[in-house]
């Protein structure tokens, strides 16, 4: 590809416009998962950053501002100084990224403050972003306020080197099993959980299967010593 190609403004050559702030997490290389071998497709050199929706700008619109203001104010009253959650609004869903040390207080005010009243927690969902350096492990909480009929998402991160996140079981007892599952699958240690043990995998299982670096098994084939490589090493679209 030559430099002049970049000025080609025909629709098929235009990159989609990036609107607003974005949050970059890693890059995607090539198109067919080929590394090192002769890829004649021409797509092997393609480098695309993996960008997640970035921080939203005020005003957020609707009830989002109200909730965001109430959360910061209530957390401040409860003893969290200078809490500035990173707020992401994407496809009509609002996400508050909060510091992990603030999580117990934030969860408590989200449940108890009358302007917030998020009575129901729909559990914890872990996500492993190996390329999000320093924040590889994410714990995602979906909260529902039945009083106000609102939903928000709470996201907390922990680095791989120190996979600790405070437990929310004392605020939302429903998270008991959800945190056990997230520990089982990702190895996130929820400090303060009453009995953090494996729940789906056997008690003596090594490793945490949902992590992206968990080795997948290949399948031996009874034909001239062949094997089928594990799914993450097969040639595939990416």
């Amino acid at each position: 590809m030559t430099e002049s190609d970049h000025t080609d403004e025909t629709p098929e050559n235009k990159l989609p416009a990036q609107t607003g702030e974005v949050h970059e997490v890693g890059v995607r290389q090539g198109m067919f998962g080929v590394r090192g071998s002769g890829d004649t497709s021409g797509y092997g050199g393609l480098v695309q950053p993996t960008v997640f929706p970035g921080e939203a700008q005020r005003p957020y619109g609707g009830w989002y501002d109200e909730v965001a203001d109430a959360l910061v104010a209530a957390a401040h009253d409860a003893g969290v100084e200078s809490m500035a959650p990173r707020v992401v609004i994407h496809r009509g869903e609002i996400t508050f990224h909060v510091r992990r040390e603030d999580l117990p207080v934030v969860a408590k005010v989200l449940r108890d403050d009358e302007r917030l009243r998020f009575e129901l927690c729909s559990g914890v969902s872990g996500v492993h972003y190996p390329d999000d350096t320093g924040a590889e492990l994410h714990a995602v909480y979906h909260l529902l306020s039945m009083t106000h009929n609102r939903r928000i998402r709470l996201e907390v991160t922990a680095p791989d080197a120190d996979p600790h996140i405070p437990s929310t079981v004392s605020v939302y007892p429903t998270n008991d099993w959800h945190e056990r599952e997230t520990f089982d699958m990702f190895g996130i240690v929820f400090d303060g959980h009453p009995a953090l043990t494996r729940i789906l995998m056997p008690d003596d299982w090594p490793g945490h299967p949902q992590r992206k670096d968990y080795p997948l098994g290949g399948i031996p084939v009874e034909y001239k010593g062949g094997t089928i490589p594990p799914p993450d090493q097969r040639r595939s679209y990416n």
Binding site: V25, G26, R28, Q48, T50, V51, F52, S125, G126, V127, H128, Q210, Y237, N238
Partner: peptide, 11 residues
């Protein structure tokens, strides 16, 4: 999704 052809995570 991370922008790919497969779910990055489905819980």
């Amino acid at each position: 999704s991370d922008g790919g052809t497969r779910p990055f995570r489905a819980h």
